[in-house]
Write a protein that binds this DNA or RNA. Structure first.
Lengths: 127, 127
DNA sequence: GTAAACGGTGACACCGATGTGAGGGGCAAG
DNA sequence: CTTGCCCCTCACATCGGTGTCACCGTTTAC
């Protein structure tokens, strides 16, 4: 498929798809006239990448994990990728905690404030 | 306290503290010579802000929530802040899901790959 | 009084994913 | 052939929090 179709199916802009290729995240073959053609499996690949981006991973990091996402890597490459993936996993868990903490703080604020608002409303109607 | 002490106690750089003030996130009084002096409660404030930053909130957003973090706001201001806080809460929850999904995907990769590595190791030792 | 440590402002730089626009080819249907 | 749509590359812009450097004033301790 060409870039337009991939873009539609993944809802990722053409600009971004080209960028991904630049970063080595996806692969394409070129038609004689230079147009990109993608194999079917790149759809899933792009979705996975998007998921990682959404979680805050960088393209650099994802590239380092790639050996484990494609054809069977050598022992050496696999081990390197494993290390990256494990440390990223840890980062995600840390991030998770941060978000949970922030949400809890937010909840406290929301709660305090709605109590306060209720009190305000009560006073003004009683007045 | 002066900026150095606040910086140490919150482990936020002086640079960032000044930036926060620029954005209206913290307040200070100035000594005659122009140096910032902070009240005790700004320590907690800065920590809260950091927590929100860590979760990906923008300073703009935090500013809009401020009315609910300080002195008792008017009904009107409180309602506006409430709206922001609730929508941010939702954003955080969405973010949370994204991270959980990415971590799950990562786990799948890690699992597949370690199985594969084990198989490789088995083959090479059997050979 | 002098040195050391602290503070102030201003400006430039960075990162990383994405938008945008210019200027130019490719290809299919009328 | 022409019109319309898809594609190409290159390059500049953006956002937001932080680092860093320059240059200069303040406070503190000896």
């Amino acid at each position: 498929m060409r870039i337009g179709e991939l873009s539609e199916r993944t809802r990722v802009s053409r600009r971004s798809l080209r960028y991904y290729e630049d970063q080595g995240l996806v692969v394409s073959t070129r038609s004689p006239s230079g147009q990109r053609h993608y194999a079917e499996d790149q759809v899933e690949r792009v979705r996975l990448i998007q998921s990682f981006f959404a979680a805050g991973l960088s393209s650099r990091t994802i590239v380092e994990m790639l050996p484990c996402m494609t054809t069977r890597p050598t022992m050496r490459a696999a081990q390197d990728s494993m290390a990256v993936m494990c440390s990223e996993r840890e980062r995600l868990s840390t991030m998770l905690d941060a978000i949970l903490a922030a949400r809890a703080a937010l909840d406290r604020l929301i709660d305090e404030n709605s109590t306060y608002q209720a009190r305000l409303a009560g006073e003004s109607s009683a007045r």
